[in-house]
Design a protein around this nucleic acid. Structure first.
Lengths: 233, 233
DNA sequence: TCAAAAGTGTTCTTGATACACCCATGC
DNA sequence: GCATGGGTGTATCAAGAACACTTTTGA
């Protein structure tokens, strides 16, 4: 089947930058999920999951579909990032790509879950391999967006397990923003928003005092948000 | 001339939301430039300036080109906003549109300057006519972006003449953010950044005390910006 | 001389920062 | 019993908010 147009059209793709946060390591890291390409161009190179937009789906749907098809990940936070359209960004011909950012809880999305998961891997964002196309730029743009967004919207919680400790939350912010926070001041601030609920559970297992577990009160956040509330860190 | 593809592709367009600020009126207003369509679909309706992306130009270049072709405006601040891709947003067939926001100095861009200027008009953003396609949504998204951006980046100056008074600057911020500022606190804050230079000129003509004119020190801003400086209002 | 906007400082309140010790747990 | 991270309060400082009068100009 083939199609004819009066004027040539760029191909239209979506690509996803997927961020995960590993708080279990010695030094916690923000990571991105990449796919090893098994077809040309850039065969054998790492790239962001993505693919072409179909004629009857929205861009959001295309991003969600590619995310699921290539990594098995679904039902996660995802938002449009930026559209990349340099004429030479794809050697096959003009391809414009609408990039998305997804935030996932690493624990829920260990690999081997996805269809093509054998060729997928998480990389720390400052130890990325060489990436196909202009994907290095896409990741860089996504990191900037994440850093900007995390400061005035509570998106960071998307990167944590449903239940988390205050130290984990602090580590997350410190990792993303590349700075440190004073423990007491951080807790005071977070406390002030009244957006965390003690679950009653405790995180134990390490040779130190057990830590209380919390979950994010997204209902309350949505209610506050409507009244012009500002989360700011 | 016609072109054949194996898979159908959406058409790719750019659209521009152009903001101007009229500070001469009784109640100052943020305005948007619209074009009256003289071809189907939506013939006779107002729409944002825009058109299809050519195969050899970047998205930024396409937006700048359409801006110039349809309104005569060039060399202004312009940035990518968001990409709209609902499958039914264009009755002619699947068309994805990369929207841009431009900020212009109204005084420099009175109409009749552009090629098709006879069919262009400025509308206050809260008295927009019915717009073609999903352009109402595009404008709404642009306003939100402007409101967010103006608070932590000095983009507002793009909307003013090169020389402006502090009252004009304050009116601009009050109009965009839909709030008022205390005159003394506002001036103190702006002063604190050291980003305004007195030009020596005065704005006179009204039956009240003449006002000093300033210009924005963009060199100094760029220098500060590199060292992690934050403009915040 | 009047109306209208320009210009200018101080006080108070609030939020941000700095800082150090005891507690519970697993080994 | 010790090493490790969890948990807590106060004092200081800086920035934001509130607030009113004098000056200059054109008509």
């Amino acid at each position: 089947m083939s199609f004819t147009y009066k004027y040539p059209r760029p191909a239209l793709a979506v690509d996803c930058v997927i961020f995960g946060f590993d708080h279990t390591q010695e030094t916690p890291e923000l990571q991105t999920l990449c796919i090893e390409r098994n077809i040309a161009p850039f065969k054998g190179k790492w790239a962001l999951p993505g693919g072409f937009v179909q004629m009857d789906e929205t861009l959001d749907a295309a991003a969600a579909r590619e995310l699921k098809e290539e990594t098995g990940i679904e039902n996660v936070y995802i938002e449009q990032l930026y559209t990349f359209g340099a004429p030479d960004r794809d050697p096959r011909g003009r391809t414009v790509s609408v990039a998305y950012v997804a935030l996932v809880n690493l624990e829920k999305h260990h690999l081997d879950a996805g269809t093509d998961a054998k060729s997928a891997a998480w990389f720390p964002i400052n130890k990325l391999p060489a990436l196909a196309f202009d994907h290095k730029l896409v990741v860089k743009t996504a990191i900037e967006r994440l850093r900007g967004k995390v400061r005035y919207q509570p998106v960071g919680f998307e990167l944590l397990p449903d239940e988390f400790t205050l130290s984990e939350l602090q580590m997350l912010y410190e990792t993303i923003l590349e700075r440190t926070f004073d423990k007491r001041n951080f807790r005071k601030k977070i406390d002030g928003y009244g957006l965390l609920i003690e679950t009653g559970g405790m995180r134990r297992g390490k040779p130190n005092r057990a830590a209380k577990l919390y979950r994010f009160d997204s209902k309350r956040y949505k209610a506050l948000e409507k009244h012009g509330f500002l989360f700011e860190l």
